[in-house]
Design a protein around this nucleic acid. Sequence first.
DNA 1: TGGAATAATAAGGTCAACCATAACATTTTT
DNA 2: AAAAATGTTATGGTTGACCTTATTATTCCA
Lengths: 222, 222
Amino acid sequence: MTVMHLSESTEMYLKAMAELGGQDAIAAARLAERLNVTPVSVNEMVRRLGEQGLVSHIPYKGVRLTKKGREVACNVLRRQRLWECFLYDHLKIEWSQVYEFACSLEHATAPEVTEALAGFLGNPQTCPRGNPIPAADGSFKPLDAMPLSEAKLGEMAQVLAVNATATDVLKYLQEKNILPGRVVTVIEVAPMQGPLTLHVGGKDVALGLSMAEFVLVKKIDK
Amino acid sequence: MTVMHLSESTEMYLKAMAELGGQDAIAAARLAERLNVTPVSVNEMVRRLGEQGLVSHIPYKGVRLTKKGREVACNVLRRQRLWECFLYDHLKIEWSQVYEFACSLEHATAPEVTEALAGFLGNPQTCPRGNPIPAADGSFKPLDAMPLSEAKLGEMAQVLAVNATATDVLKYLQEKNILPGRVVTVIEVAPMQGPLTLHVGGKDVALGLSMAEFVLVKKIDK
DNA sequence: TGGAATAATAAGGTCAACCATAACATTTTT
DNA sequence: AAAAATGTTATGGTTGACCTTATTATTCCA
Ligand SMILES: [Mn+2]
Ligand SMILES: [Mn+2]
Ligand SMILES: [Mn+2]
Ligand SMILES: [Mn+2]
């Protein structure tokens, strides 16, 4: 089984699916949003990925990673998050920029470099955004967390991870103190898909639902 | 002056010209060899680079970097050699593989990352192959060295740098102990473009002239 | 159950970076 | 001064990854 070289584009499609999808099928439109391409382009690409056995597409149901596709995706996530650790911990790059820089490096990283980097970093388990780093064999224990968007009024929760990728979104979350480790309390839930109001770090913060989807939290009792 | 994003291909053409050319014009055929493409492809690309003001082409004379092109090339060399330092000194990657891995990373490295990396490494002046690392402003003092291929019978010289890039060539030079710092003595020069025989590290080594062109040395008196 | 919304396809383009083959121009060598 | 070698241009292809503008198919919902 030769390890063909996959393009940056291919790796990004697979990574996006792993980040969005968990196990279930993903609507092509969601992929299009995240990758900033048109749905037509996603459909074309999905056909190509299907031919390579990386995804399966059930029309009108969605796209799903195959075993092979998931393996590749986990490996991309590993490279990405290891670079995030290096950029943040050793190069002292701005937290909100770490993702985008790592997202370039991930595609230019040979297996030998990935593993040497993991060793250099001491085999970290999570990246600066709180996401778990898949092991070299691809194994991967997903966070036991729920999206903040599902939290109810009055609930307290601890932020475990931020799954956003856009630098401006990350910058916004950083400014508002919505960062891994922080505890937030939901003090208002506006109707009609309106924003959540949170209490965090001594301040009140309004957070739109779609942003809150990318904040993964663990409920705290009491 | 917006810093348009240059493709990997563009960066590799410019870097190859800086590595091969020094100041003078480079024959398109030399570029084609180094980049493993056909001369026709080089001509097409040279046209595109010319339109962007990165090179100037005098037909039948050769291609030459413009000021702007040289700046870009030096910046690519900076990124490349900084990564070489990191991979070799911190990740303990095999000496002969360091170039090829750095050659991927160089195109995926934002300016902020380049400068943070330089700081992390303590602003090194040379890469593991002995080549000088251009400064952040692009300034660059070339080695005061000659190619080993020009050494005369009986001469002693110290290896300053190895300018080869192919992993198998680097592996060969490493095996034969032709590495930065080593002192070599020319004990035979075969006629008809034949190989040099060197004494280095207690052993006699035959080295073809074309490989010797990529070994930069400083003559040692007596 | 019939629209509306959503998803998928079809058709026709673009662009960068490669390829081969052939014709032509210039330089170098004999 | 020819001939040979080298370099350049012209033509015509390919591939991956995008795009737009229809058209068609399916699902969802009132
Ligand atoms: Mn990426
Ligand atoms: Mn390169
Ligand atoms: Mn088409
Ligand atoms: Mn053409």
